[in-house]
Design a protein around this nucleic acid. Structure first.
Lengths: 216, 216
DNA sequence: GCAGAACCGTACGGTACGGTTCGGTGTGCG
DNA sequence: CGCACACCGAACCGTACCGTACGGTTCTGC
């Protein structure tokens, strides 16, 4: 019996997956192939060639091709880090700056080529395999970010800087104001306009509008 | 030399693709296969079986498999219709109701299983084939809707009901307020919550917030 | 009624890829 | 030294699917 594939059920969402350094290098090569050529470009033979490893090792480490894809998603999701928020609600200006920095980081992550490639991969597979990749990306990616954002917004509410009923609802509005339809357009292959490349000003206008809706 | 594949370059974006009734039936079967099983489920042999046609006819009509996929996208995009906007700016209330109806229709289209399936298909292929499908979906789908929305919003501005500088920017905000991260979550396989199924109230709150930002 | 076109169903070639097996190589350890 | 282990590279197998070819059938215009 071969080694078990990387399984979402046996790994807690908040536990970083532990891949050996060699495996991490291989996963980075897999990610490169995904970014430049999409899912079709990530073949086991091709990955073994570019990463200078044997197919036997791939199957020993990841079980099968689906396990490899899941490992790539899990690994990259674990690499994403957001700025800490400790004590960022000292006063109104620094809190607002912190919110803006959060949105800017969000734009930077979601619009990066690696994130777009992994989203394309997961979306393309979302109606097969009982949808492991989609769940993985949602649980390890979006839901983590959403939780982080909610605590940040609630902190602002506690300090009388924001005013809303449902933190999840407020976060979704902030997300919508910041992302709009840019994400889906990028996923479909459209390239960024010069204005859309300026994440800082994009974040500022989004936060400005957010405050006009939810500012205290 | 076989018949040419359906080619985006030879068809004007505003011209409805003319498929014979028989071909339209086949394309609807293809769409069914796509909705229930994703791209992997749409094989030429499988489509020929379920649509009761021969593979030879498929290749005569659509050139190759990519041409078939492009034809499915183009056909379904041509089927999407939005309510007309003639004389909907009579007074403030009817205009706002019209905007709300537009948003509700937008939600209905984007969150339909067929639209989600075609978006998944196009996104999955967006880094291959010089990205024909992504462009097709953007040009025949999103850009058409965006143009329609801009004229609607500018009509509201002419009548002194709305206030904004850039219609495209205003439309993107409306889009973001309405869609938020629901679209990407659905694309990743998450199922709709009961609140998210109520497109009417979703549209109303979105339009309410939009008016607080852009109302005159 | 007949010729030709369009079409159906099926069988087949070619190919790409997932997954397995095997021989060879380097390394750590008793 | 010799054994075990992990790994690499390559060959191999089975399968799924695209694209084509062909015989037989239905439709259409003259």
């Amino acid at each position: 019996m071969p080694a078990a594939a990387y399984d979402i059920a046996t790994s807690r969402p908040d536990a970083a997956p532990e891949f050996s350094p060699r495996q991490q290098v291989v996963l980075q090569h897999a990610l490169m192939l995904l970014v430049e050529g999409g899912e079709k470009a990530l073949t086991t033979a091709g990955l073994a060639r570019t990463a200078s490893c044997s197919k036997e090792s791939l199957y020993k480490w990841f079980g099968d091709r689906d396990g490899l894809l899941a490992a790539v998603v899990a690994y990259q999701a674990s690499q994403v880090q957001f700025p800490s928020e400790s004590g960022a609600t000292a006063d109104a200006d620094t809190f607002r700056a912190h919110v803006t920095a959060f949105v800017e980081a969000l734009l930077g992550v979601l619009f990066s080529e690696t994130s777009l490639a992994l989203n394309r991969l997961s979306i393309g597979q979302s109606n097969t395999n009982s949808n492991r990749l989609g769940h993985l990306l949602l649980v390890r990616g979006k839901h983590m970010i959403s939780a982080r954002a909610r605590t940040m917004l609630e902190s602002g509410r506690r300090h009388g800087l924001l005013k809303f009923d449902d933190a999840e609802d407020a976060y979704q509005v902030l997300y919508g104001l910041a992302i709009r339809d840019v994400h889906i357009r990028f996923l479909l292959g459209e390239s960024a306009s010069t204005a859309e490349r300026d994440h800082k000003s994009q974040a500022e206008t989004a936060v400005d509008r957010f405050y006009r809706l939810f500012g205290a």
